[in-house]
């Protein structure tokens, strides 16, 4: 019976919260965003960064530091998960191999996933997508084989190396600007011709670093969780 009171209280507060939130949103007209900054960015982005994809221009240019932060969070989460699971993955029975279809498909898909991931990473400044999306595909390329045959060793060492150096490279690219007494993460290289692969200055370099880092991190993280689960 105790549980019902709790649920009732929850529902009551949630109803209140919902009504209040709707009341507040009433005061904010929909579809007429003030766009103080948004409009300015849309106008200035091609000139400032050379990227076609304005969201990319924001992610890597205007708000590059956010992206560094988000990469760091992934890294911290992976490191913390690794530490938490550290003792768990050792020992314990390994799960059995998956069936033939998944097993074969995993290895068959591997090169395609690799290429697709690389493409998406490298075209992040031109089309939707970018380092995170591409990195996720790269991670899947490496993780699917682990899923197919849990006994196959996942090379955590390499993943860690890639992860560490890619992350450091992101910051290093940012710090290079300080040599010319510019601010952190100021783009360098020419902006190039809009729409070309080699354009938008150093932004693709950052995306490459992100792609590698995210790919190795996600792959390592998932391998570790699945290993821990298998060991449990």
């Amino acid at each position: 019976m105790k549980g019902y009171g709790h649920t009732a209280a929850t529902l009551l507060f949630l109803t209140g919260l919902g009504i209040l939130l709707i009341a507040i949103l009433q005061a904010l007209p929909f579809g007429l965003a003030p766009m103080q900054v948004g409009q300015a960015i849309v106008a200035a982005a091609p000139g400032d960064t050379g990227a076609d994809n304005i969201v990319t221009a924001i992610l890597l240019g205007y708000r590059g530091l956010d992206t560094l932060g988000e990469v760091t969070i992934l890294f911290v989460a992976a490191a913390a998960a690794g530490m938490v699971l550290g003792g768990a993955s050792r020992g314990g029975a390994q799960a059995e191999n998956a069936g033939f279809i998944l097993h074969s498909a995993a290895y068959l898909l591997f090169p395609f996933l690799l290429v697709l991931g690389a493409y998406i990473v490298l075209h992040g400044h031109l089309t939707p997508g970018g380092g995170f999306q591409g990195g996720a595909i790269l991670a899947a390329a490496f993780f699917v084989p682990v899923l197919a045959s849990p006994a196959s060793p996942f090379n955590h060492r390499t993943a860690m190396l890639v992860e560490g150096f890619a992350g450091a490279a992101f910051i290093m690219i940012g710090l290079v600007s300080l040599v010319g007494s510019d601010a952190f993460l100021t783009p360098f290289f020419g902006k190039g011709e809009a729409g070309a692969l080699f354009s938008a200055g150093s932004l693709p370099l950052l995306y490459l670093a992100i792609g590698l880092k995210v790919g190795s991190e996600l792959a390592g993280l998932m391998a570790r969780v699945s290993g821990a689960e298998a060991g449990a």
Partner: peptide, 21 residues
């Protein structure tokens, strides 16, 4: 204007990335 303002953030993060290695 002081670009070095990023150092308290950037240095530990680089070190954190490289520390596992």
């Amino acid at each position: 204007t002081v670009p070095q303002i990023i150092f308290p953030v950037a240095i530990p993060l680089i070190a954190a990335f490289l520390l596992p290695i």
